[in-house]
Structures are given as structure tokens and as C-alpha cells.
Amino acid sequence: MKALFSKKSLIVFGVYLLVAGLFPFFGSDYFLSVGIIMGLHAIVTIGLSLVMGYAGQISLGQAAFWGIGAYTTGILTTKWGMSPWFALLIAALIPAIAAFLMARAIAGLQGYYLAMATLAMGFIVQIVFGEWESVTGGMGGLVGIPALPLFDDLGVDFYYLVWGMVTLVLLFSLGIIHSRIGRAFRAIHKSEIAATSIGINVANYKLLAFVLSGLFAGISGGLYANYMGIIDPQPFGLHESIKFLTMVVVGGAASVWGALLGTILIGSIGEVMLILSEHFPMLKGDMDTIVYGAILVLCIIFMPEGLVPRLQKIMAKRQEEPLPAERKLGA
């Protein structure tokens, strides 16, 4: 039987485990919380990379699914008294269902029209969070969301829970990418006509990408609510959606490792900006917005494929041999 993973991917995965696993031993509590939030973001962006980098669709409203996950947990635990674990399970499912319904509704849209529809959907969801007071607590939001039993110290334990989840989502996505499903995603990205001609139902696979991204966002959102204990509509809007987008684009949408790396990179830049603004008050204000904007612009112009695919390309160039001669390598 063939090895489950190639040697190169085992090394990459080993480095990942080492870094993610050892991180809590090198930082303060503050850094731990930064690591937790990064992990939560990474779960969302890995899903988003399936939609954008693989299936070639766009979502300008990913924070909405994240929010639906968070609010599901929030509402079920505080208003219905449901156990946090069970609520988390439902928090994963509801956004997946929401993504299914949305993708069904807008399956026929392309390019700019799809961008508009996802943008609109994101706004609607955020407005509902703010306006449906009896259920969502309105602008004040929900308070007193319980932590997950077994992980209720919200420290190192919770960190490992989150990054364990990141790892699962990562492995699951890698499994999909290197399978007929992932190839179908990439095929519809390049040519819907060709994909159809080989038997791929384009609408269904777009739907599937959105549903998976909704599922991942829901898991992350549910955990976020458990972690924060309070939620309000503010973090689930366009600003956050664009931040997710930035992370995916910078790391490289057509790579789940790219999404992960982009998340860590953008998250770290945010932290650096925060520290800088404490020391140089004149940087206060929207310095981080300027930096994100500049990164997006520079990235699209100079490195549209993103960091990880660019690195892969450079490495491949280095080893690139001339085209193999006929029948020399013939398996």
C-alpha cells in the first residue's frame, strides 16, 4: 500500500505541529489569547480558501456565517439553557444550512454579481443581529455565554482545543483537495464548460464549497462565543469579512496552507500595529486599515497568487529540469 502522505507534506505538517504545539510555552497570557483568536480565524479562512482559491467563487460576507455560528451558541446556551457542547454542534450546522440556502439562491451568479449578492447577504445578517432584539439582544448583544465544560479555564486548554480543531479542519480540507472533489472544485474554477462536459455538476460543487466554508465558519463562531462569553453584532460585518479575505489573498487562496499562513501573518501585523500605536500615539487611528489596504493592493499587483503558491513556484523553478524526453519516465 502507498504511503498516506508524501515526504514533503509530512515535513511541512511536522513543522506546523511543532510551532502550533509549542507556542503556548513561549508567551504570556496575552499571547495565548492572540493565538486562540488566530486559530479561530484560521478555521474560517481555510473554509474561505476552498470557496475562493479552489472553487473560484467570491464571498464578501464570510463573517456572517461566523456570526451565525456565534449567535447560535449564544442564543442556545443563554436563552434555551442548552449544554455548550450540544450548542456547538448545532452552531456548526446552522451556518452550513444558511450557506446552503444562500448558495442555492445565488447559484447562477458570476463575478461581480456574486460579489454583490454575498455582500448583501453579509449586511442582512449583521442587521438582523442588531435588530432582532428579543432573540439576539440587539446592539447590546448576548452576555453570560458559558464556556465549554472541560475547557473552561479559557487558557492553555482552550488554546489546544482551538488548534486541535484547526488541525482537523486543515487535514479534512487537504484530504478533499487531493481528491476527485478538490479536482472538481479546481475544474469549475478554470472552465465551467469543460467541467460540465466531464460530468461535474457545477452548481452542486459551488454549493458544496460554500457549505463547507459555512460549516467551518460555524465551528469557529461557536467556539468564539464560548471563548468571549459576550457577543454583539459589531465583529460580524463587512470589516471582518474583508479581513478574512485579506488573510486568504495574502497567504494564497489556492492553498489551505496559504490561508493558514496568511491568517497568522495578518494577525501578527495587527498585533505589531497595536504595540506600535502604544509607543507612537500619532499612529493611533486607522493605521491598521492603511496597512491592510496597502497589503491588499501590493499583493494583488505584485503577487496575485499569494505567498505560499509564490514560494512553491520559486522552489519548483529551482529544481525545474527541462521537459523529460519522450518515454524516458514513462511510469
Partner: peptide
Amino acid sequence: IILTIGLSILIRGV
């Protein structure tokens, strides 16, 4: 889309 979103947040930040 992403390029011009980047531009818009850049301008807004400035």
C-alpha cells in the same frame, strides 16, 4: 474586486 477594496480601505485609512 479585491484590488479596489484594498484601495478603498487604504484611502479611508489615509
